[in-house]
Amino acid sequence: MDSVTLTDVTYTYPGSEGPVLRDINLSIRAGEFCSIIGPNGAGKTTLCAAIRGFVPKFYKGDFEGTVRIKGEDIADASIGEIARDVGFVFQNPFTQMSGITASVYDELAFGLRNLGVPPAQIRERVEGMLELAGITAFRDRDPFQLSGGQQQRVALAAMLIMEQDVIVIDEPTSQLDPQSTDDVFALIEAAQKQGRTIVLVEHKMGHVARYSDRVVLMGEGRIQAIGTPADVFTDPAAASHGITLPESIELAQRLAGHGVTVPGSPLTVPALIGALSGGSHHVAD
């Protein structure tokens, strides 16, 4: 079943010159890990906002087409109602804190309290999420006293704890070091394993290649390429839109230039090494 469906979506922000999204048609299956990539200003964030209903309900502007979540057109639902099905984390973690809680613990509990979840259950879920997100160490810290990277993890955890079916995350690792980036991807993958649908905007192509079921390449408001990571990263559109290819694919392409053909499109460096040392490579004379 399709979890998120966009049909002929074209959108112009109020006051902006041309459409920021043009003729977007996209279906994301339930439980799919779908990454959106593309250069700055391509419309990635706007696409996310359209799935969450912020576009056009909050940002107004000219909107054409339909967005369906689990088959339901969201045109008539309020932003609050859509929140029950779609979780959303913004690019800037600073604005993701409720602003009224004195500790990370309370920050995670805030959403569940609003929904009237019984106290004992809230405590259980908060403890579980602190553990899962690896933020137990700063459970009693003021969310505003955390570093940008720590805040990003808290923001993500505070959203994941709401347990929506669709999770839209805009560049969750922009301020994270490599270790924390890995941790965050593990966290998102864990959510996917629970059957939730992931829509992720990300610039770290190595991680996109490794975790995604499908990759959407955006450019100038249009979908330029869509498919498996292997398809999209080997598509000429990727290079022409300034995408830094994952190391493994970059290496495979360079090797091809030197006459070494690597079978398939290995998405990680270990996979590339495996493909090469498997003896299945062909060296042209």
Binding site: T95, A109, V117, P119
Partner: peptide, 24 residues
């Protein structure tokens, strides 16, 4: 700019839910 996003964040955390809330 933060105010806009913050309003949407609160919305995402069920702030506009109408039922009874839990106090810890």
């Amino acid at each position: 700019m933060g105010v806009e996003e913050k309003a949407l964040t609160l919305e995402s955390r069920g702030f506009s839910a109408t039922g009874t809330r839990t106090s810890l």
